[in-house]
Design a protein around this nucleic acid. Sequence first.
RNA 1: GUGGGCGUAGCUCAGCUGGUAGAGCUCCGGAUUGUGGUUCCGGUGGUCGUGGGUUCGAGCCCCAUCGCUCACCCCA
Length: 421
Amino acid sequence: MNSRLQAVRGMNDLLPEAIGDWQRVEAVARGIFADHGYAEIRMPLVERSELFARSIGAATDIVEKEMYAFQDRSGDMLALRPEGTAGCVRAALQHGLLHNQQPRFWYQGPMFRYERPQKGRYRQFQQIGAECFGIPDADIDAELILLTARLWRELGLSGVTLEINTLGTPDDRQVYREQLVAYFGGHRGLLDEDSKRRLEQNPLRILDSKAPEMQALIDEAPRLLDSLGGASRAHFDRLCAILDRAAVSYEINTRLVRGLDYYTHTVFEWVGEHLGAQNALCGGGRYDGLVEQLGGKPLPATGFSIGVERLVDSLRAVGVSAASATPDCFVVSVAAPAGEALVAAEELRDAGLAVICNCDAAGFKSQLRRADRSGARVAVILGEQESATGQVGIKPLRGDGEQQTVARADLVATVKQLSKG
RNA sequence: GUGGGCGUAGCUCAGCUGGUAGAGCUCCGGAUUGUGGUUCCGGUGGUCGUGGGUUCGAGCCCCAUCGCUCACCCCA
C-alpha cells in the first residue's frame, strides 16, 4: 500500500461524496452569469510563459517562484496558467473580440501554482472568474460585486464580508509608493525581515503584513486614499455610492493592495469567516492598463475570480450542502432469464426514471440490501416466481406501502406512480 | 523556501514505565434455504509510513528519510 502511487502534492481528487456541492456551485454560477448577459469562454490551460510575465508581473512571486513552467519539444517556454485573466485578455485580443465592443465574459477551470499547500490553498485549484472590457465607469465594478453578492445569496452562503479599496492610477500609485518608501524607510529599524524585503520589492505589500509588531507602524502609514487624484477619487466615491444605494455592506480596507501588478482603481475581496488563514473567497478589481500591455489598444477592464475550493468549504461550514443524487429505483434479479433485468431497467429509463440495475449473481438478501443503500425509493424484483408467471415484484423501500406483484406489462406505470410519490 | 503537529485495518481511533497487534464503523456471511432498514452471531481486512540504530525483545526509545496537515511567505 505504501508503494502505491499517490496524487501529486497539492492536487486533489474530488470524490463522489463531494461532487454534489461542486455541481451545485457551478450550476448556480452558470445561471447567474446567464442572467447578467455574461458569455462563457474557455481558454487553454497552457500559455506561453511570457504572457504571465507581462501581465501578472515578472517580479511577482507567482511568476518568479510559483509557475509550472516548462519547455515543450520545440523549445517554446510554456506554463500552466496560474490565473485566468491573462489568458482571457489574450484570447479576446487574438480573436478581435474587443474591437468596438464591451464584452462580458466568464470562465471556470483549474489554475496551477507551485506553493506549499495549506487549508484553502492547493497547487491545482479551481476558479470561477469574470472579465468585463471596455467600460471605464465604476458601475461595472459595482455590477461585478452585486453579481458575486447574488451568488452568495442564491447559494445560501453567510458569514462573508466585502472589503474594497482603490489603488488609483499608475501615477497615483507611483506617488504613493514613494511616500511609503520614505515613511517605512524612515522607520527601517522597526521593520521585520519580510517587510525590509518588501520595501525593496513591493512596498505596498507591507501594508497587509500580518506581523503583530508591525501593526502600529502600519496604522500610522500614509494612506493612498488621502493622496488620490480627482478622477480616481470620483471613481471610488461612485463605487461606494452605488454599493450604498444597492444596500451591499462593505468595509473600506486601505491596506488591501492585492498581489498582481495589473490592478488599478477598484480592488475588492470577499473574505470568509469560516476559512483558515487563506480566507479570501473571491478577489477582483480593475486593470485598465493590461489590454494595452498585452498589445491591444488601451482599453479599460475589470474582473474577479472566485476560489471554488474555498467557496465549497465555506458552504459546508455554514451547513449548506447538496443532497447526493439517488436513483428512483433499483432492479433486483435472481435467476431471471439473461437480459431481463437490463431490459426492464431500460424501459424504466425510457420513462424518465433513474435506475440502478443489479449486475451480478448476488443473493436475494444481498441485492435487496444494495437496493436499500442505493437510496432508491422502490425495488423492482425479478425472481424465479415472477419470471415463471410473467410478472414483476414492486417493493416500496421508503415509508409505507406493501410489496405488490403486477403483470410485466404494468411495470413502468406502477413504478412511475410509486417513485413520484 | 521556513516552522509546528501528525503517520497503527478501507474510514475514525485506542494501544500502560518497551513483553506475541485492538475497538467502532464499512464490507461479506449467518440467525430468516425469496425480502432491505433495527437487533444478535460470525468472518474478511495490518511488512504499526520507510530505512537504520539501541535492546534478549520496539507500534512505543534514538537517528535519518518520505508523506499528510496547519501556519509563515505569497495568494483564489
